[in-house]
Design a protein around this nucleic acid. Structure first.
Lengths: 155, 155
DNA sequence: TTATGTGCAAAGACTTTGCTCCTCA
DNA sequence: TGAGGAGCAAAGTCTTTGCACATAA
């Protein structure tokens, strides 16, 4: 990791501290580590993956702490669940508005940042159902890596 | 149910028969009943709800048959899973392209049909990740029913 | 100091699977 | 008649919870 990344992570941890204080929550080493794992990863890890990663630094951490902490971080709006149709919940710490390409073969999740002129508007008739809080777009398909593998098999 | 609905359902069952034959699958009473439940409901039922409903007509049906059948119907593209962040999978038999408003309070799922001029285009940079198969939009918020309940409590 | 958080173990919720008998085609 | 499907029971997977001890503030 380069210096600017380190700095960015430090900023995020500081924000986590602020948010915890604000909500009367304690800043524990587990919370910091678990948040770091999600924030440092671009792989939208599931709870198990976070657990395995954190265990390297904190061998005594338990799975239920990971689940509980992920839930707390979600409450703090520090992380978000990626909508998917997979059995495991996956998490994302990137607060910039974006959407996901989900590979139906390997379950990989890729971030999609729309161009400004592609901004999705809330469709006119959505608001007749209630108060819109969040709009989420997933694009499902087969990722380039899997397409390549398919081609290789055919040859 | 009125006559035109009955007719529409019959058409759907016939389509189910065709699709089953096409794929070498049998048309069993369970499959018909389970499909009917999803197709007749506008509530995007979960497996348990389908099970309870089917049990009225077929008391011996089992939960695992419901799960297995829902999976088969999905393979046939007769029904679809609704993307949600709820613990239970929910199903939809409406093949017309549409999206969902999901209430974060009561978990109700409402269908949203976009106007023609609101058609969502696949964003330009999505295809760089792979072959797009499906684009799905969910809108999360608080539905009118729950908003009303909130107001009532405040008074 | 003390309320909040953690680790452990156990339970819970939803879904899937193995096996045997049944039944549609 | 035979391959695919249903029912039963049991297991699997992911996640949550109760409780006692530990710890951040």
């Amino acid at each position: 990791m380069n210096d600017s990344n380190k700095e960015a992570i430090e900023d995020k941890i500081n924000y986590l501290r602020t948010m915890c204080k604000l909500k009367g929550m304690r800043v524990t080493p587990q919370r910091i580590e678990i948040y770091k794992q999600v924030a440092n990863s671009c792989e939208h890890p599931d709870a198990e993956t976070v657990y395995e990663a954190v265990k390297h630094k904190m061998p005594n951490v338990s799975v239920d702490t990971v689940y509980r902490t992920l839930a707390s971080l979600e409450d703090l709006d520090m992380i978000f669940r990626v909508d998917n149709q997979l059995p495991r919940a996956r998490f994302d710490a990137d607060k910039r508005p974006h959407n996901h390409f989900i590979c139906i073969k390997c379950n990989e999740v890729y971030d999609i940042f729309f161009d400004k002129d592609e901004e999705i508007k809330i469709p006119g008739n959505a608001e007749k159902f209630g108060e819109v809080k969040d709009i989420n777009i997933q694009i499902r398909g087969i990722c380039n890596k899997c397409l390549q593998e398919q081609k290789n098999k055919q040859n």
